[in-house]
Computed example of a mutant assay.
Amino acid sequence: MKNTVSTFAKAKKDGARLSMLTAYDYTTASLVDAAGVNGILVGDSLGMTMLGLPDTLGVTMDDMVHHTRAVARGAKEALVVADMPFMSYHLSCAQATENAGRLVKEGGAQAVKIEGGAQFTPEIEAITRASIPVMGHLGLTPQSVNAFGGFKVQGKSTAAAQRIVDDARALEAAGAFAVVLECIPAELARIVTDAVGIPTIGIGSGAGCDGQILVYQDMLGMFDDLTPKFARRFAEVGALMKQAFADYDACVKDGSFPAPEHTFAAPADTFDGVK
Results as ranks from 00 to 15, higher is better:
A111H: 12
R69T: 13
V153L: 08
Y216P: 00
R73D: 05
G175K: 10
F271Y: 14
D247Q: 13
G149Y: 12
N99T: 09
T28P: 00
A94N: 13
D166P: 06
L226A: 06
F223D: 02
Q217W: 01
P185I: 09
F264R: 12
L138K: 05
V145G: 05
N3T: 15
G52T: 07
M222C: 15
A23D: 03
Q212V: 06
M20D: 00
A259C: 13
L240N: 03
S256Q: 12
E125F: 00
D62T: 09
G139W: 12
A111I: 10
D63R: 11
D62Q: 13
K13D: 09
G39S: 15
T4I: 05
M50Q: 13
A118W: 08
M20G: 11
A109R: 09
D55A: 02
Q162N: 13
V180E: 07
N3W: 00
M241N: 12
N38S: 14
D254V: 10
G15P: 06
E172G: 03
T128G: 01
K152L: 10
L188F: 11
L171P: 10
A159G: 05
A72R: 05
E77V: 04
M61H: 11
L138H: 11
N99R: 05
V153I: 14
G255F: 09
G197I: 08
I40T: 08
P54H: 07
H66G: 00
F230R: 08
T158Q: 14
N38V: 00
P199L: 12
H90N: 15
M61C: 06
D83C: 05
P199I: 09
C209E: 07
Q110V: 06
A16V: 14
A178P: 06
F177V: 12
M84F: 03
L91V: 13
D218S: 08
V145S: 02
D254K: 13
A111P: 11
Y26M: 11
D272Y: 08
M84K: 03
M1R: 06
I114F: 15
I198C: 08
F264T: 08
F257V: 04
P122F: 05
M61I: 14
A16N: 07
V274T: 08
D62F: 01
D224A: 11
A96P: 11
V252L: 15
K242S: 13
S30G: 05
A195Y: 05
D55G: 02
T141V: 15
E236M: 10
V215C: 01
D14F: 05
G175S: 13
Q162A: 14
A207C: 04
P85T: 07
V192T: 07
F271S: 11
T141D: 02
V81I: 15
H67I: 01
I198Y: 09
G273W: 00
L226W: 15
A109F: 13
F223A: 10
D25L: 03
T193Y: 06
V5F: 07
L171R: 03
F148G: 00
F230H: 13
V192I: 15
N99L: 01
Y26D: 02
H67S: 02
G208S: 07
D166R: 14
